[in-house]
């Protein structure tokens, strides 16, 4: 099969790969580039475990062809902590005991990050809406909602 080149930034670092045409971004990230933080829970766009951020927008990487990401800026959960310091969302998920098996967690954190980037002071309804594409089978969601609200509060306190 003909290989096609793709080039984008992943968490700020340049990446260039030759991939099979039709490869999803999820596969390219996990199997080619080696960032396994996006998870494949369904490969059909219904679980949210593969959620990444592309140019500031929320995307399901299992439904995104890698070749459409040329020139894009891709962000994943593995790129959130800087210099070993956890991002406020990561910290809040830890403190709220919002992860059990953790398989949904990277996708949840991505969905929450896009929300907070656009809506720094979200209501509970905003959080619910933002997480509504992400399935969690372990937590019952409430700790995750609380973690996102806590992260938003800590962000705005730090901004003051």
């Amino acid at each position: 099969m003909a290989k096609v080149p793709v080039q984008f930034t992943l968490n700020g670092a340049e990446k260039a790969e030759f991939i099979d045409s039709g490869t999803t971004l999820l596969h390219a990230l996990r199997d080619k580039i080696g960032d396994t933080s996006p998870k494949g829970g369904c490969h059909q766009g219904t679980c949210g475990a593969c959620t990444v951020i592309i140019d500031g927008e929320l995307r399901l990487s299992c439904l995104t062809l890698a070749e459409t990401c040329n020139g894009a800026a891709v962000t994943t959960t593995s790129g959130l902590s800087e210099g070993g310091v956890l991002h406020s969302l990561q910290r809040a998920f830890l403190d709220a005991f919002a992860t059990q098996c953790g398989f949904c967690t990277p996708g949840m954190i991505m969905a929450a990050k896009v929300l907070l980037d656009h809506t720094p002071n979200p209501s509970r309804e905003d959080v619910v809406e933002a997480l509504s594409g992400n399935i969690c089978r372990c937590t019952g969601y409430e700790p995750i909602i609380q973690a996102v609200l806590t992260a938003a509060r800590s962000n705005s306190q730090n901004a003051v």
Binding site: C42, Q44, T46, C47, V127, V128, E129, L131, S132, I135, R137, G140, Y141, E142, I144, I145
Partner: peptide
Amino acid sequence: TDFNQYLMPGPGDLAQT
């Protein structure tokens, strides 16, 4: 065969617990 057809309560359907 997917999470659209197999129903579970989402974050907007939670009981006060």
